[in-house]
Amino acid sequence: MQWMTLFQKETLENWRNFKWLWVPITFILLAALDPVTTHYLPVILEKSGELPEGATFDLPTPTPPEAFLLSFGQLNLLGVAVVLLMTMGIIASERKSGVTELILVKPVRYTAYITAKWASTLVLILVSLFLGLLTSWYYVNILYGDLAFTIMLGSFFLYSVWMTFVLTISIFMNVFFKTPGLVGFLSIALIILINSLNGLVSRFIDWYPSQINTYIRTYVINGTTNGDLLLTIIITLLLIIVMLISSVLVFRKKELAA
């Protein structure tokens, strides 16, 4: 099947340029470093000897859920940045250099071209995310205390919806512009805009996509979900599908015009 061929080609390329090595490692380090350093912060401060004589201060020890949530703080900032910077040229630079034309001369369907790229990157990101959260969960259990495995799994599934949303925004931007730098800048700006509107919009509606992060907080701390989590997920998935379909349509139009 044509789609599988394209998907395998993308996956092979991701192996060749080491993405399958450095992306999982980056996510593992991002997710694990904060819980570990926070645990050893008092020791590090003491050993570094920068404190004035007799200075004492009590750092509150985070509970296991709080420590686990530190990982999400890092992933939301740097993890999202890594995803956007990594994918900013995924289609744009191929169009710029003419590789797209080489592929599309053959009877390759536009839908297959876009969705194969999207799917192969999605698999890479989700596997990396899972490994990262698994490492964080492992360290939280050793350093802070018990945290249920199901909590880790649940928060992974919730967060993958958000990550898929972030990736799809980047693909969407890729279709419009040929300069990777511009694509990266606009995707980051859009994500920041979406996140900063969260406080305002969430007063009126319960299903705003970046609400997922708030829902993850409640879920990890209380173990239960509240409000319209399901509706938020469904709306976000719908937005993802709409963005994917319109990416294909815009891409087809642009390539036929070119």
Binding site: L21, W22, I25, L29, V36, I142, L143
Partner: peptide, 12 residues
């Protein structure tokens, strides 16, 4: 606890 993180950092 620290060694595994150092190892994957070294791999990177």
């Amino acid at each position: 606890i620290v060694a595994p993180l150092l190892v994957i950092q070294a791999i990177l």
